[in-house]
Nucleic acid binder design. Structure first.
Lengths: 196, 196
DNA sequence: GAGAAAAACTAATAAGTGTTAGTTTTGCAA
DNA sequence: TTGCAAAACTAACACTTATTAGTTTTTCTC
């Protein structure tokens, strides 16, 4: 009889969520079965239900954890008394860090939120809309203060968020691109462009 | 007994593929069932098999159709004797147009290619890698010719492709952003940045 | 209108799904 | 060592899945 291994700093539920994020990332939420998840944990599927309520609960935990982290960070950034450009730069760098430190969870939140049941789906979308709104406000303020060129703020936010999200395609081991280069070059590209 | 309606310019198989793209987009490939697809077409599920070979075949048709369109376009762009910047601009604008004219298919190709069975999965990834390689070459040439700032070409391509892909989040009916503004502002953002 | 081909149907299959019930084993506290 | 709770197990259920077989209906061609 196998047992779910709990590392020092995590409950069994936490271990399950982490494995679920890994599995949902590689196979997608719907295609990943509880039996597969159990096997990855060295256990039979029904045993999982001693620790969790349902498969859906795992997705919820992942999505809201990620959503809240991003929301918390942008709230802190907003109240930080620096130039708007510096704030936007901070947001971009935070996205890149999140992508590197919590890749599985961020990936799943980005790709599988569709499978959240109501009312969680609506809640999640509200969180995301709130985040986008915050960033849009930031860009608008930047334009007013003449730190940013006159452009459509919605399009600017769309461009920025899409670009940072795309880091999921980054191949960590492409030896000639370090994290620092990735961060610096992307920030530079999004703020200053690539044309002279 | 219902029948699959074929519009003037499409076989029944084509109609099925289109509906499949719409369904796979909204529910994801795995979560969408053949029974749902059949119902959307006003028919019973087994009837579909008079026109198609399998569910997987539908995904293949969608993914490769999209992949080939993008590949064809970048090949044409490469051989077009204009400045590198103009080529990159053309690529960006083509992505936006594709997103608007073939939204369902592009979305599905971007999100559901993971569920392609081998050897189609490898084929698809090769097509995508080839596309990225072409664009990277373009950026490198631009740097050599001093049209583009010195930056990591891989990061630049990642930023550009991610940004244009993100148009899938664009809300068509956000009344204050026309397609023209979206296109122009995004091109401008990616080439010239948003900072003065 | 007759015959053939296309395309719909119903019925069924084998496999896989999340989850529950009930039972046994494990590990800790006394 | 005993007793209890946590957590594993096996067996099973009620559904859903893509797909096949076999049959009937529709549509096209002559």
């Amino acid at each position: 009889m196998a047992k779910i291994l709990t590392s020092k700093n995590g409950t069994k539920k936490e271990v399950i969520i982490q494995k679920a994020a890994l599995l949902f990332k590689s196979k997608s939420y719907t295609a990943a079965s509880m039996r597969e998840l159990a096997e990855a944990l060295g256990v039979e599927a029904p045993s999982l239900y001693n620790h969790i309520g349902s498969k859906s609960e795992l997705l919820q935990a992942i999505c809201f954890r990620v959503g809240n982290k991003f929301t918390l960070q942008i709230e802190m950034t907003k109240s930080n008394p620096v130039a708007v450009i510096a704030k936007i730069e901070a947001v971009i760098r935070f996205h890149i860090q999140m992508m590197l430190e919590n890749f599985d969870e961020v990936y799943v939140a980005n790709h599988e939120w569709k499978h959240l049941p109501e009312p969680f789906l609506s809640d999640f979308l509200n969180i995301r809309r709130g985040y986008e709104k915050s960033l849009t406000d930031l860009v608008e303020t930047g334009i007013e203060k003449n730190e940013i060129k006159k452009t459509n703020p919605y399009v600017a936010v769309l461009t920025i968020l899409s670009a940072v999200r795309g880091i999921e395609f980054w191949q960590r081991n492409k030896k000639n691109v370090s994290q620092q280069v990735l961060e610096d070059d992307m920030v530079n590209h999004l703020l200053n462009g690539i044309v002279w």
